[in-house]
């Protein structure tokens, strides 16, 4: 059976959060796999916030801001995009895997796109399996229990 991933979504209040809110109000169905953290702008999202999420056991992190050219603060989403790309590289080096992190651009009125992004990310993580740290931690607990 496919596991239910835990995905942390770091999203901006002006665009993607509004879309997510609208998806909820319109009762659009999508997997209950995301935990949302609302930012004023994706430009505030730091590499460290993403790494901490994985360290705490998130199976994936999605960052989502306004569409390119639409950022409320002009270029916060572009800054986030670059930071996400760099953090993917860090995740590869660590051994977690950069493909567990993705950036999306979802405008305030694009509720269906939000639902679709969550579906996509959920499927991707289901194919990848749980965060390797979680796997490691579980196997250690099992070893301790046996001994």
């Amino acid at each position: 059976m496919a596991f239910t991933p835990k995905i942390e979504a770091l999203i901006c209040t002006y665009c993607t959060y509004t879309a997510a809110d609208m998806a909820g109000a319109a009762r659009m169905q999508y997997p209950a796999t995301v935990r949302i953290v609302k930012y004023l702008c994706t430009g505030r999202i730091d590499i460290l916030h993403i790494l901490k999420a994985f360290e705490a056991g998130a199976d994936a992190v999605m960052v989502s801001g306004c569409e390119v050219g639409d950022c409320h603060f002009l270029e916060g989403n572009l800054r986030a995009q670059e930071r996400v790309e760099y953090t993917k590289h860090l995740l590869d080096e660590i051994g977690i895997g950069g493909e567990r992190l993705e950036m999306f651009h979802i405008g305030a009125s694009d509720a269906p796109q939000w639902a679709e992004a969550v579906r996509q990310m959920t499927e991707r993580v289901q194919a990848l399996g749980p965060n390797p740290l979680t796997v490691k931690r579980r196997s250690e607990v099992q070893v301790e229990e046996k001994s």
Partner: peptide, 19 residues
């Protein structure tokens, strides 16, 4: 301070994965 946090998180995760 921030880069200390990043390096610490990287090392903790990578070394934990290596057991």
């Amino acid at each position: 301070e921030k880069e200390v946090g990043i390096l610490a998180a990287e090392l903790r995760m990578a070394l934990e994965l290596e057991g």
